[in-house]
Design a protein around this nucleic acid. Sequence first.
RNA 1: GCGGAAGUAGCUCAUUUGGUAGAGCGAUAGCCUUCCAAGCUAUAGGUGGCCGGUUCGAGCCCGGUCUUCCGCUCCA
Length: 487
Amino acid sequence: MANEIANNFQEIISHCKEYGYIFQSSELYDGLSAVYDYGQMGAQLKKNLRDEWWKSMTQLNDNIVGIDAAIFMHPTVWKASGHVDNFSDPMIDNKDSNKRYRVDHLIEAHAETLEKAAADALLAEMDQLLAKDDYAGLKKLIEDNKIKCAISKTSNWTDVRQFNLMFSTEFGAVAAENEGDNIVYLRPETAQGIFVNFLNVQKTGRMKIPFGIAQTGKAFRNEIVARQFIFRMREFEQMEMQFFVRPGTQMEWYNYWKETRKKWHESIGIPAERLRFHDHIKLAHYADAALDIEFEFPFGWKELEGIHSRTDFDLSQHAKYSKKKIQYFDNDLNEEGKPYGNYIPYVVETSVGLDRLFLTVISLAYAEEKWTKEDGTEDSRVVLRIPAKIAPTKLAILPLLKKDGLPEIARELMDQCKPHFHCFYEEKDAIGKRYRRMDAIGTPFCVTIDHQTKEDNTVTIRYRDTMTQERIPISAVKNLVQEKING
RNA sequence: GCGGAAGUAGCUCAUUUGGUAGAGCGAUAGCCUUCCAAGCUAUAGGUGGCCGGUUCGAGCCCGGUCUUCCGCUCCA
């Protein structure tokens, strides 16, 4: 069974490439690890998913607004958020146990087993090497002292390496006087762009708590292990909504968004039984509750969206580091009939990986089908059963023959429909072959113009999912497809 | 990161001990064709992932490297 699913995953990956959904980045140059490009079909599907999310947040909730913050942010943002400190330590792995250690912890632990003078000398040398970022020297120090892994009891170590989970680049064209002075990071999450704009949005939008700020955009993480196609990439897109609430009410909203978000996934065609909640036992430093909405991917249950109750951690940190007050005056009356007054709002975060959502939709849509035709011969197709609402191309317009005036009628219908939804025109090859091609890219509706059209202005509409077809007036095509997309 | 497997045309694969690479499908152009990939003709497409070594000669042997998948590990 595990094998079967894995094979299916391979086929999905191949299909994505073959039909213009996803290509590996820089494939011409052998590719760049864990970076992918969306092709002509994929970019449209991804945009449709993003639009659907954006609408569900900012259009259907009158207390949620959207922003688009820059990828570059002031370096102090990442000090305040805790990202810099948590990932600046040199690490070393034991090759036998595969256990990873912080180099300073490993050496300090060893020092405790030594006499005081020896220990002090060792630690002094370590500090010196750490200050110089001398990783080769640190490794030599570990080897010279015959420091062993607590698990494998061996000294089979990798080189000392620094794990920088954030990508950095230089800001400004002129080199800095002091090295490192002009380093900026590519944001490792979009959330901070919302937090640092909290006051701007709240004041200019006259927002009243509870309210939310939504944002979609790229984020960048130097994952140590990035794999499984587009599931874990180094450059990826998040769709986040931070919901600001009165302290004490966060669990109520946490539960509200937990249910609301799951229902949203179901609304774009993800079956409820392929979704589940997974509560975090070990909480991150900023959270007082956290869970994942998981989807059953071809390679198992994995996180699709995170719901976190982030408390007032982020806003407090930014208040502290910026030395500016970040608070909200709540005029609503409490039980004693007095305003709630000033406070730092609590935050409930919903954060979906757009690429993961894409992979979810594709995994669900992909199907290989076989059946026996009326004459007893076998037939088959590969079809992407993408819900019409999010399918990249909605309608294919196909003249049965490329003569007798049929293409002209088809072109007219094309002009009539294309302002309203994405259409595809094709007159080459036999009609059956064209249907198969449309199945493979997931086009939900095909309309065929034949000789009868010239007589009674009717066309055949063919449905991807059932492969059935019916005769309808050509004038009804646009509205019918529009209804199916919206419905 | 560790271990395993793999990389030949857009896709799926072949090339039996090393002798200058082939098929099917697909694609393109045209013909034929009145509704579910299968008719006819022609054409394009590969420095065998990349670099190096052994050899008279390497897709095949050896080393390195890049990329992908699987298991473990990691994931603020």
